[in-house]
């Protein structure tokens, strides 16, 4: 080995030395560490500590005996077995997937489109007005939204008035399942598109304006500028949002579905979250509801990891980890 090569070889650090270095860095950045302590404590206290409660999914839970004191189920997977043996299991899973996937397909791109369109608007007052108006529905309670949907979908409601204008017959849109999906997703878009666009507008505001100047010199039209400047600029953000939204496919806003249910569609609209609510909260079967929700959490984790893997496979720079 030459002297030069020997000089490039560093002695390997021991674990103790690495730890000492880690603590030294922490000490040097103690102000930042102090800032993180409170949020970290909140996460540990409210996200990790309660996790021991998932144990009741495997136990014959008796409140008097507590989580640890309750006996283990025999077999330990009895609650999961009961869920998978339930004849409604397949329907509930499919309905959950259907609502989740359609929600993702239709609600995910809308804020991106709105952000791109607003980015092209030159008039500042118009842009700000549109932004403010589009944010407002985000602050309306879900109960009010569902009440509005119920009123609009009734025989004399707004939606039926619009149908009548174009010569379509009046129908009770709140009954059955035929109009559930358009009303569920349409209202979600209406309520979330403005609020969801904020993050993309923020990303677009960081684009170096000289890029637009260069594009102008090169004779690029608006669509070409969007394609070659704006979209690459927000790509990391869109990717992160997509990965996180994918994890939510099985955990939709169950309160909205619950509020849209009635005696003509209750069983057809059942998704995992409403099922867990019904079994856990209404029927007081905490252990069974915990088992079902644990199953959903595992599926969601797989979806997030899987999506990240796909993204990393396509473009390693865009993946979260």
């Amino acid at each position: 080995m030459s002297n030069a090569a020997a000089a490039r070889t560093f002695p390997k650090k021991t674990a103790w030395e690495r730890m000492k270095k880690w603590f030294r860095i922490l000490w040097q950045q103690r102000a930042l560490v102090a800032l993180c302590l409170l949020p970290l404590a909140v996460v540990i206290l409210f996200q990790y500590v309660p996790m021991y409660g998932v144990l009741i999914a495997f136990k014959k839970y008796k409140p008097k005996r507590g989580v640890w004191g309750s006996a283990w189920l025999d077999p330990w997977y009895k609650n999961f077995q009961e869920f998978f043996n339930n004849v409604n299991c397949e329907h509930i899973l499919l309905q959950t997937l259907k609502v989740g996937v359609f929600s993702l397909i239709f609600t995910y791109p809308m804020p991106i489109l709105l952000a791109l369109m607003l980015n092209e608007v030159k008039s500042k007052w118009f842009k700000r007005s549109v932004q403010t108006i589009s944010y407002l529905p985000h602050f309306i309670s879900i109960v009010v939204i569902c009440s509005m949907l119920n009123t609009f979908g009734s025989l004399d409601g707004l939606f039926n008035n619009l149908r009548a204008l174009v010569g379509l017959p009046r129908v009770n849109m709140n009954a059955g399942t035929a109009f559930f999906m358009p009303m569920f997703i349409g209202s979600a878009i209406w309520q979330g598109v403005g609020w969801g666009s904020i993050i993309y507008l923020s990303a677009l505001s960081n684009v170096d304006t000289s890029l637009y100047d260069v594009a102008n010199i090169d004779g690029a039209n608006r669509f070409q500028k969007i394609r070659h400047i704006c979209l690459p600029a927000i790509l990391p953000t869109t990717t992160v949002v997509l990965i996180l939204n994918t994890g939510n496919i099985f955990t939709q806003d169950y309160t909205k579905i619950l509020l849209m249910m009635n005696e003509t569609n209750r069983m057809d609209l059942e998704v995992i979250s409403t099922y867990v609510y019904r079994m856990g909260i209404q029927d007081g079967r905490f252990e069974f509801a915990t088992a079902v929700n644990l199953f959903v959490s595992v599926i969601s984790l797989i979806l997030v990891v899987g999506t990240n893997y796909v993204v990393r496979f396509i473009d390693p720079e865009q993946s979260i980890w």
């Binding site: 059955g176 005696e263 003509t264 209750r266 069983m267 057809d268 019904r278 209404q282 029927d283 079967r285």
Partner: peptide, 17 residues
């Protein structure tokens, strides 16, 4: 209790249909 609750909910929807 479980049977009554679950079967009632299902039957209400079916009956309306």
């Amino acid at each position: 209790s479980t049977l009554t609750s679950a079967c009632e909910k299902y039957s209400k929807v079916g009956a309306n249909q």
